[in-house]
Computed example of a mutant assay.
Amino acid sequence: MFISLTIIIVTFIIAYIVIPPLKKKGEKKTIVVFSLILTIGAVLNIAIGLKKNIPSPLDFITFIFTPIRNFLLSLLQ
């Protein structure tokens, strides 16, 4: 619980530092993208802090390309 609270506090500090200058410049799209990426990062860090199993992006790539590899190997043999 302490780790989650720490991550949330650090996330708010980062947002407090970065978002006001972007507001002054009128960068609405940048604020949305920044907030989205910051939120995803915070959620993933909280999940890691709570010892949840986070799948690797390599698992998805392997899932997609294994059938393609097997098909190509069957054509070449």
Rank of each mutant, 00 (worst) to 15 (best):
L72P: 03
G49S: 00
S35R: 00
E27Q: 09
S56H: 07
V43E: 00
L73D: 11
I37H: 07
I40T: 11
Y16I: 02
I46R: 00
I14Y: 12
L72Y: 09
V43H: 00
G49D: 01
L76T: 15
I40P: 03
A15I: 12
V33A: 10
K23D: 04
I61W: 12
I17M: 12
S35A: 06
L75F: 15
A47K: 04
G49W: 01
N70Y: 12
A42Y: 02
K29N: 11
P57F: 13
F60V: 14
K23L: 04
E27D: 12
Q77T: 15
I40C: 10
Y16D: 10
I13H: 03
L22R: 00
I31K: 03
K28V: 11
L75Y: 15
T66W: 04
L75P: 08
V33H: 07
I68G: 08
I48G: 01
L58P: 00
V18D: 04
I54W: 11
L36C: 07
I64W: 09
A42K: 01
I37L: 10
L72Q: 08
L73G: 06
P21F: 12
I14K: 09
I61M: 05
I64K: 06
L44T: 05
L76S: 15
N45V: 01
G41I: 06
T39K: 00
I46F: 02
V10M: 13
G41W: 03
F63S: 04
F60K: 08
G26K: 12
V32D: 06
I46C: 01
I17G: 00
I9N: 07
T66E: 05
T62G: 00
L72G: 08
G49F: 04
L44M: 08
I48Q: 02
I46D: 00
F12E: 07
F34P: 02
L50F: 07
I40V: 14
L75S: 11
F34S: 04
L73M: 13
I54N: 06
L73F: 14
V33W: 14
F2G: 03
S35T: 07
I7F: 10
G26E: 12
T11Y: 12
T6F: 15
F12P: 03
N45G: 08
T62Q: 06
K51R: 01
F63V: 02
T66G: 03
K51N: 02
I40S: 13
P57C: 06
I31M: 06
Q77H: 15
N53V: 09
L72S: 13
S74Q: 12
K28A: 11
L73K: 12
